[in-house]
Design a binder for these strands. Structure first.
Lengths: 198, 198
DNA sequence: ATCTTTGGTGTACGCACGTATAGTATGGGG
DNA sequence: CCCCATACTATACGTGCGTACACCAAAGAT
């Protein structure tokens, strides 16, 4: 919940972000108040002041509609460290954010994963590439998925068989991983795109 | 020059865009006036009205700082049709714009090129990929460049030899193109990244 | 020769907007 | 227990801001 914010504050921040994306400019204090049904602009103003004090907004005093959202306008979070067995998928908490218009790869929540090694080289995914994935816990046969294997996130092709689930690397020198459905690793998302730098 | 706009109007539009990127919210009429040294807000207001009439801005009447830039906030133009021997590299004129934060791939002007065929498959660039290029008319040896060959844009590795320039595909089934420096095709840009969808 | 477009100056109106003052209610921590 | 943070209502002040009115000047186009 964007850490350190109250529920209301998070809601206000989210509204400002949505408004910004929709209109191209931020809302006024009174527009925020109107959206939440506040009968006094003071209520909205207080929340925005709190958000500023906590570092989420920068407001130019006295100037109408002069609200800058400091943290992410939007973007795709790059999968960072894995805390308590689960990786961080929220944009707000991500260490690195890919400045790419979400929605470009379709609808849904997305995250990115930096590829290490050449286990997917036959799919033309090379070391250092950022793979874009839609966050979901299921996959269709043949799709490339990010799965959680022993506290590590890896990219594999998802191949369900009659009794087992196979996870295929795209590299002739590597063997598929075979698991029974009950011990199947958790699917974090399916591949929807790729970004390569340099 | 963003087509159909006077020089001043283009300057105003560009300023608004820059201001927006810098602050996260649009400038007021008076801020525009101040930037250009206008002694009356009227001058700036007129230009913004003209820009609105021509479809480049959407302004909410009476509301301070409520200016929406209709055309590209920013982005990377996807190389479209080739007019009069030269492709369109301007964001403003591009048919398709990649909603990707420029600056992600470094500094400079960028454009994108949709790859057809698998002539660069050994570089793990496959059919349908969008290659991101920095616009420049020179290249270092070994860099992947977009060149203009007979009214068509193609991607090749740039290999200058003693007396000739070689353009290598990354596919063993295809032969390099060899040209003398004087008849060398025009370089449009060098590869800096790649975006793959689905 | 006149009209339109472009690019300005100067002044002024009126209201939308940020913000201040004052007050109510709730809930958690020392 | 009191105190502070949270979350509001109600009213009001001052002004930044969009915009209108009036006017000037140069450059094309008709």
């Amino acid at each position: 919940m964007t850490k350190g914010l109250t529920k209301r504050q998070a809601e206000v921040l989210e509204f400002i972000n949505r408004y910004l994306e929709e209109h191209g400019y931020p809302p006024t204090v009174r527009e925020v108040a109107a959206h939440f049904g506040f009968r006094s602009p003071r209520a909205a103003h207080d929340h925005m002041k709190a958000l500023q004090k906590k570092g989420y907004l920068r407001v130019r005093a006295g100037r109408p509609r002069a609200v800058e959202v400091v943290r992410p306008r939007s973007g795709i979070p790059v999968l960072g460290r894995i805390a308590a067995g689960l990786p961080i998928l929220a944009v707000e908490e991500a260490e690195e954010v890919l400045g790419l218009d979400p929605g470009f790869f379709g609808s849904g929540r997305f995250f990115a994963l930096r590829v290490r090694g050449d286990s997917m080289i036959e799919e033309h995914i090379q070391d250092g590439d950022l793979v874009i994935l839609r966050a979901q816990d299921w996959a269709r046969p043949g799709e490339i998925v990010a799965v959680l294997l022993e506290d590590e996130v890896t990219l594999k092709r998802y191949v369900p068989r009659r009794d087992v689930v196979e996870l295929h690397p795209a590299n002739p020198r590597l063997e598929p991983i075979v698991v029974t459905p009950d011990q199947a690793p958790r699917i974090l998302g399916v591949m929807r795109g790729l970004v390569r730098k340099a």
